[in-house]
């Protein structure tokens, strides 16, 4: 996983908390900064790309590590 500025561990949290927490974290970040979001909610696999697509915060990378989903999201200009 590439470099990130903020890490958010949403392991154990269920829908819609990973999305809500990602939103909160991104709102205090500057455009271009990157958020590493870790989640165990299986729904996040589709929810985070949808969130990223709608809010204009590009999803840079997705991977799975130790059974957890890792999302690297860049704060957009919007």
């Amino acid at each position: 996983m590439s470099n990130f500025d903020v890490e958010l561990d949403a392991s154990g949290l269920n829908c819609p908390l990973p999305v809500l927490k990602a939103r909160k974290a991104l709102s205090s970040m500057s455009p271009g900064q990157r958020l590493l979001l870790i989640a165990t909610d299986k729904g996040a696999e589709k929810d985070i790309p949808a969130f990223s697509n709608i809010t204009g915060n590009p999803l840079i990378e997705t991977s799975e590590k130790d059974g957890k989903l890792h999302f690297l999201i860049e704060k957009g200009e919007g």
């Binding site: 829908c15 819609p16 999305v19 809500l20 990602a22 939103r23 969130f51 709608i54 809010t55 919007g78």
Partner: peptide
């Protein structure tokens, strides 16, 4: 509340 909070998070 779940859909509304998520929709708000989506802007």
């Amino acid at each position: 509340f779940l859909l509304a909070s998520t929709a708000a998070a989506l802007g």
